[in-house]
Simulated scan of single mutants.
Amino acid sequence: MSAILRNLEELPRQNASHVKNRWGEVVRQVQESGSVAVTNHSTVEMVLLTAATYNQLVEDAQAVKAREQSVLDELGRRFDARLGALQEPGAAQQVGNLFAAKGKLGRRPKAGDSF
């Protein structure tokens, strides 16, 4: 995420009554600090932030979602390729032979070209 956001505990705070009665001051504070936590009975209930910060958050969230979808699409393609290999003629027999071998190899493994 390219927007640098502070933790909720680090934000400047204004109680809801102050926000209601002195909106202009709160707007200036948001523009100066980037965001303000609005409290009600000492509990943060919401955060006010600039439109630019909100837009950046939306763009960042969409970028993350696009990356996730790209990864899921790639995994889907790999799954389909493996499933296709298992559906080829003779694949069931090969899998059966593999399980029947119980981990034993039919011949000794080679340890490289000079073995």
Score class of each variant (00 low, 15 high):
A91E: 00
E88I: 04
E25T: 00
N55W: 12
T53Q: 13
D60T: 07
E68W: 08
K110W: 14
D80A: 09
T43V: 15
L105N: 07
F79Y: 13
F99W: 07
D60A: 08
R28P: 00
A66Q: 06
V38K: 03
S35A: 05
L49A: 09
K104Y: 11
L57E: 06
S33L: 05
S33R: 06
R77T: 09
V71F: 05
P109Y: 14
R77I: 09
S35G: 13
T53F: 11
V38S: 02
A61G: 12
L83A: 10
A85T: 04
T39Q: 01
T39C: 03
L57G: 05
M46C: 10
G96H: 14
Q94G: 06
G96N: 12
V64S: 09
S42K: 13
G24H: 12
T39L: 03
E25Q: 00
S42G: 08
Q62M: 10
F79H: 13
G84E: 06
V38F: 06
S33T: 14
T39P: 01
R28H: 04
L49R: 10
R67Y: 05
L75N: 08
V44G: 02
L75H: 07
F79S: 11
E74T: 12
A66E: 08
A37I: 03
V26W: 00
G90S: 05
V58Y: 04
E32K: 05
P89W: 07
R28A: 06
A85P: 00
V95T: 02
W23Y: 13
K102R: 08
V95F: 02
L98A: 10
K110I: 13
Q94L: 09
T53V: 15
Q94T: 07
K102C: 01
W23C: 10
A51R: 15
Q31M: 08
A91C: 02
G76C: 06
A101M: 00
K104F: 14
G106E: 14
V44I: 03
Q62L: 07
L75I: 14
V44H: 02
E68K: 05
N55G: 12
K104N: 14
E68P: 01
E88H: 10
A52P: 00
V58I: 06
A100N: 06
R67Q: 12
E88M: 10
R67W: 08
A61R: 15
A81S: 13
T43A: 14
L98P: 00
R77V: 07
Q93T: 15
K104P: 00
V47G: 01
G76Q: 11
G24I: 11
E45L: 10
L57W: 06
V58K: 08
G103Q: 03
A52C: 10
G84W: 09
F79G: 04
V64E: 14
G103Y: 03
V30Q: 02
W23E: 09
A66P: 04
E25G: 01
R28W: 05
A66W: 06
V44R: 01
E59Q: 10
N55R: 15
A101C: 01
P89D: 13
W23G: 10
V26P: 01
A100S: 12
T53N: 12
V64Q: 15
H41N: 14
V36P: 04
N40G: 11
T39D: 02
E45H: 11
W23P: 00
G84D: 09
V36L: 04
V95C: 03
W23I: 15
G24F: 12
R108K: 15
D60E: 07
